[in-house]
């Protein structure tokens, strides 16, 4: 079983590296951030009353964020179900692809990995 072991000790390293590089590349090619920041500024300017408990207005920016959350959740759920049935087929290789996809989704959308590379605080 030693060869398997070698593969799997390399795997976390390679996958981790690939996800990091991928996320960084995504930040370069996705126009999302800049556009969203503009929308946020516009919303802010639309003079919603000062902070407070009933400031629960749905700004366009917030709506977009919530929508992203739902889409990501659905994606993750779908992938998990596919994964479950793939197991019955015994297709380990495909399962690894799914694992990496799921990990990338979580790291990019939920954990905002791109924020690590951002120098200024753009929320």
């Amino acid at each position: 079983m030693e060869h398997l072991f070698l593969v799997f000790i390399a795997l976390p390293l390679v996958v981790g590296g690939a996800v990091l590089v991928g996320a960084w590349l995504l930040t370069k090619i996705m126009p999302g951030d800049a556009a969203a920041a503009k929308a946020a500024a516009a919303a802010q300017a639309a003079a919603i009353p000062a902070h407070g408990p009933d400031y629960a207005r749905l700004t366009p920016r917030r709506k977009a964020a919530l929508r992203t959350g739902i889409v990501v959740l659905l994606g993750l759920a779908l992938l998990t179900i596919v994964e479950f049935f793939l197991a019955a087929l015994g297709s380990t290789a495909l399962m690894f692809v799914i694992i990496i996809l799921k990990a990338a989704l979580i790291m990019y959308f939920f954990m905002h990995i791109a924020a690590v590379w951002r120098t200024e605080e753009a929320h």
Binding site: L66, G69, I70, V72, L73, L76, A77, T80, I106, F109, F110
Partner: peptide, 9 residues
């Protein structure tokens, strides 16, 4: 997974 979703919210 669902808990992660609510955390995001």
């Amino acid at each position: 997974l669902l808990s992660s979703f609510f955390m995001n919210r």
